[in-house]
Write a protein that binds this DNA or RNA. Structure first.
Length: 415
RNA sequence: GGGGGAGUGUCCCGAGCGGCAAAGGGGGCGGACUGUAAAUCCGCUGGCUGACGCCUUCGUAGGUUCGAGUCCUACCUCCCCCA
């Protein structure tokens, strides 16, 4: 099937994680003969990771499953700089306090996927603020800066792009790749880390680290990048009407997370099962081969498995059950998002209810939605934008079910 | 330093004789068709309002005009050419 001999590279390759590898034969041999230590950097620009970060996390998961040691590097230091790669504009600079908060919140997610600890191939959580913040500028320039060629840095795509478009590239950002390279070398020094993984846009940065490692420590380091994942229709992953698909439950509920995966396009099911679940490949092959309506079964499994990884098996099963009662039995799913309303004992305008449910941003938008036949109360389409909700609308379960289109449902509960 | 050009609906691109809530795309949302899919077709896509209508929008600040995205002045930002 593929040319690799080590479990690690075999699994990654078979599941579609590999875009580029530096010196694949040497890395393969090393992975077979010894325990690798590898890392991926995560930045802390937001209080949660989103679906886009899932791919790198899964790479670390498989790394550990195949007997190697993963390091999650939190970019506590580099987030203070901002990576210019592929970005059109300079990233906003965050305060140290905000970065610290984000970092704490993100940590919890990793524990779902990796076993942390102190022995064997237990995962390590590092923070580059530990070494970057203490750097002395002059020393750094003399020790590290002299190994970087401006001529070569200017040729990097990330830099070239910005220069060609005559977009501002600050010196601060220009230094990002140097710091990332330094991280790699520092992790090699501290943990014997020999491999950095990341998205395909990180290739240049990673290779810089490899060069620096050779010069400073005569080390042989490796790079492995994953492909950029888009849906079959070309859209970037992780965006929905409601915004980014975050991994923290307080930002995107397990139910909504489950829905995100349930709505995967047919053509992506097999690929996503391989990337975002831990099901055996044989099983995935069977699921992905399902045709037409039957592939919905595969999507449900994808949704439940992916949700279980992030939120736990129990939450995933609940989400699946809620979806089943809501969509397949036409009932009231227990786990549907619920909004508490305190003025329901008299009446509340449907327009206001729609806004409060988070369906729309303004009354005007709600009006248009109603005119288009997109709003339902207790599964009946509403055509009167002046419609009021009163206690008479309560179902026997003492709630009102509000629906936007066919997919989004919210329960209004009187308080 | 000199010369030329551009900034439009706070998602993006983009047209716009002085009467404009502002063409057209893309994206998004809704509807139809389906399978909670894709593709396709239809509708919607500034705020408030049951409605007449009112309010706020075209880089910023002023001005001309009954009326300005559109004309004038200054300023800001960006692009191109000469130096």
């Amino acid at each position: 099937m593929n040319a690799y001999k080590s479990d690690f590279l075999n699994v990654l390759a078979a599941r579609g994680f590999i875009h580029q590898v530096s010196e694949p034969e040497a890395l393969d041999a090393l992975a077979r003969s010894s325990m690798l230590t590898a890392y991926i950097g995560f930045d802390c620009t937001a209080p949660s990771l989103h679906v886009g970060s899932l791919l790198p996390i899964m790479m670390l998961y498989w790394l550990q499953q195949t007997g190697h040691r993963p390091i999650t590097l939190m970019g506590g230091g580099t987030t203070r700089v901002g990576d210019p790669s592929g970005k059109d504009e300079s990233r906003k600079l965050l305060t140290d306090a905000a970065i610290g908060e984000n970092l704490k919140s993100i940590r919890k997610v990793f524990a779902r996927f990796l076993r942390f600890g102190a022995g064997g191939n237990d995962a390590v959580m590092a923070n580059n603020a530990d070494w970057l913040n203490a750097l002395n500028y002059i020393d750094f320039l003399r020790d590290v800066g002299r190994h970087f060629s401006i001529n070569r840095m200017l040729a990097f795509d990330s830099v070239k792009l910005r220069l060609e478009r005559a977009q501002e590239l600050s010196f601060l950002e220009f230094n990002y790749m140097i710091l990332q390279a330094y991280d790699f070398v520092e992790l090699h020094k501290r943990y014997g880390c020999v491999l950095q993984m990341g998205g395909s846009d990180q290739w240049g940065n990673i290779v810089s680290g490899i060069d620096l490692g050779r010069r400073l420590r005569n080390a042989q380091l490796f790079a492995l990048t994953s492909p950029l994942i888009t849906t079959s229709s070309g859209a970037k992953m992780g965006k929905t009407a409601a915004g980014a698909v975050w991994l923290n439950a307080d930002q995107v509920s397990p139910y909504d997370y489950w829905q995100y995966w349930r709505n995967t396009e047919d053509a992506d099911v097999g690929r996503f099962l391989k990337l975002f679940t831990t099901l055996p490949l044989a099983e995935i092959e069977r699921l992905a081969a399902l045709k037409d309506a039957e592939i919905n079964e595969a999507k449900k499994i994808l949704a439940t498995e992916a949700t279980a990884l992030v939120h736990g098996r129990e939450a995933a099963d609940e989400a699946a059950a809620t979806a089943r009662t809501t969509f397949e039995e036409g009932g009231l799913g227990a786990n549907l998002p619920t909004i508490e309303v305190d003025d329901l004992h008299t009446h509340i305008r449907l327009l206001d209810a729609a806004v409060r449910a988070g369906f729309v941003a303004s009354n005007g938008e709600a009006r248009r939605l109603i005119r288009g036949g997109g709003l339902k109360v207790n599964d009946e389409t509403v055509y009167d934008e002046r419609r009021l909700l009163t206690p008479d609308d309560l179902t026997p379960e003492r709630v009102i079910k509000l629906s936007l289109g066919r997919k989004r449902h919210v329960l209004l509960k009187p308080v």
